[in-house]
Amino acid sequence: MITLDRISKTFPGTDIPAVDRVSFQVNAGNICVFVGPSGCGKTTILRMINRLEEPSSGRITVNGQDIMSLDPAVLRRTIGYVIQQIGLLPHKTIEQNVSLVPELLNWPKSKIKARVTELLVLVGLDPGTVGRKYPHQLSGGQSQRVGVARAMAADPPIMLMDEPFGAVDPIVRIHLQDEFLRLQQHLKKTICFVTHDINEAVKMGDYLIILNMGRLIQMGTPLEVLTEPADDFVLNLLGDDRGVKILDLTRCETLMDRDRNFPYNPDSCLIQSVKPVKIALELMMKKNIDQVGVCKGERIVGVLTWNSIKEHISRVSRDRP
């Protein structure tokens, strides 16, 4: 668990704080995404958590311990860090790059070797061919995978990821995001994830922290932020397709009508209750119908209508006064 308590940071020689009285808490096992425009202080917040920057005021604790009481190098070895610029060591092979933290922790050679192989496989790289290469021989996507593998090497419970999929094209990015989410289901790490891409934020985050000019503007689950944006800045950040994003994050069971009688037949049992409404909508459009049966397993539990979807979106995304 990570807590920041009224953290401010003003860089020497500047008047405006880069981070201005920011407080929040990241619970164990969650992905907390920091999102906001370039220069809003995302990287600075991340770098204060592993003491690459010192706050001007405020207190940061990791698992209840004030980080100022810890040796910075020792602290950093327990926190995985994916730097925005990737920063692989060009004179070391991929294997050696991934071994970096385990070596600093003096793991035995055989354990390091096994771990490196395991990690490269985990991030989807072939240890046999890629392991012996040097960073300049890799593609952007491969480099970012190595950056993530290096951060995970010593199995740190906490990871700081600064735009970890920023340097690749959209298709590879979506692929890396999906893979990472799949990994996280088992790994259950506590993750601070920085991005300036709201779609990535909504997709990756258990919680979002929205920042602007060093200030925390809003925090909450993606659905909370999408349905109740705090102000025009957030509304703008969310984009023109806020309603569609909401449908992607809302489960069918949330909007279905439980009372209405739906004529049961196995063919009309079209969608599972935990599926996003977006999928139900797709079904309705494809089959040119305006209601679908919602099921838990084989049992029908309600009905989702075109009207109820429309009403919901209209309600949550109507223009605010």
């Binding site: 770098r47 950093r76 070895r77 860090y81 730097i83 610029q85 920063g87 060591l89």
Partner: peptide, 18 residues
């Protein structure tokens, strides 16, 4: 030497002499 390579090293927990 690339500043960000050194920052990466520092962020992984390398000491100044390392």
């Amino acid at each position: 030497v690339d500043y960000f390579v050194m920052e990466a090293g520092k962020g992984m927990g390398m000491t100044p002499s390392q």
